[in-house]
């Protein structure tokens, strides 16, 4: 093992959340495959041919961290489960016009401050730096988030309808989407992700 770069980029909570959701969906699929093969094996013990492979089960350590972390991120005190890709993109785009540091922006996206006090905790010297912008920032944080928290299910459906918009069905947790907003140092990795939003539009400007 060799470490190339210890801190290549920051990830927002939502990006990790969607990564885990994606992993879970994949594992569910695999588990179904395993169940199916087990059933087959029980019925008749036949030679399955040279290319037959037994699917492996997910190892325990992966499962542990996944379940515990999802539990943490689904906590009612964190906004992560109520966020959507669109909301994160909207928020980062909106925060661009304020002179916030990268760390402050990341924390605003992660914690979605609901009150002046919560914002005060995150932003250093808030009174002097953002005398008049505080209410605007709080309003911006609320905008897309509130939409989903009112009636999560209903909002989720409309959100889905908006995004998919008669195109072929896509995995809503698909791939690296949100990472584009916060990650700057990297080119896209070689994977089969199909951007569902217009990424150029959503991308943060290169510093």
């Amino acid at each position: 093992m060799e470490i190339i770069k210890a801190r290549a980029a920051f990830l927002s909570n939502y990006e990790v959340y969607s990564l885990l959701q994606e992993m879970e969906a994949k594992q569910l699929e695999q588990t179904r495959a395993i169940m199916a093969t087990k059933k087959e094996e029980n019925s008749e013990d036949l030679y399955k041919g040279p290319n037959y492979v037994v699917p492996e089960e997910v190892s325990e350590n992966v499962r542990t961290i996944q379940v515990e972390l999802l539990q943490y991120l689904n906590n009612e005190n964190l906004p992560t489960a109520r966020q959507s890709e669109e909301a994160v993109a909207h928020l980062t785009r909106g925060l661009r016009k304020y002179q916030l540091t990268k760390a402050e922006k990341l924390q605003i996206v992660n914690l979605c401050p609901q009150s002046v006090l919560e914002l005060y905790v995150i932003v250093e010297e808030m009174e002097s730096r953002f005398e008049n912008d505080v209410d605007d920032i709080l309003k911006l944080v609320q905008e897309k988030l509130a939409e989903r928290s009112k009636n999560t299910q209903e909002a989720e459906e409309t959100y889905l309808a908006d995004v998919v918009d008669a195109e072929e069905e896509q995995d809503i947790w698909g791939g690296e989407g949100p990472s584009q907003y916060l990650e700057e140092e990297f080119e896209e990795g070689a994977d089969d992700f199909e951007p569902m939003l217009d990424i150029d539009e959503a991308r943060e400007p290169q510093d």
Binding site: M1, E2, I3, I4, K5, A6, R7, A8, A9, F10, L11, S12, N13, E15, V16, N51, Y52, V53, V54, E56, V58, S59, N110, E183
Partner: peptide, 28 residues
């Protein structure tokens, strides 16, 4: 709270996994 870390490593794939997509098995 979370970061990305770049790492290089060597992975051995057992023969019984040759039937799968290599990248998926490597990730696993």
């Amino acid at each position: 709270m979370f970061i990305l870390t770049e790492i290089r490593d060597t992975v051995a794939l057992q023969p019984h996994t040759f039937g799968f997509e290599p990248t998926e098995v490597i990730a696993r």
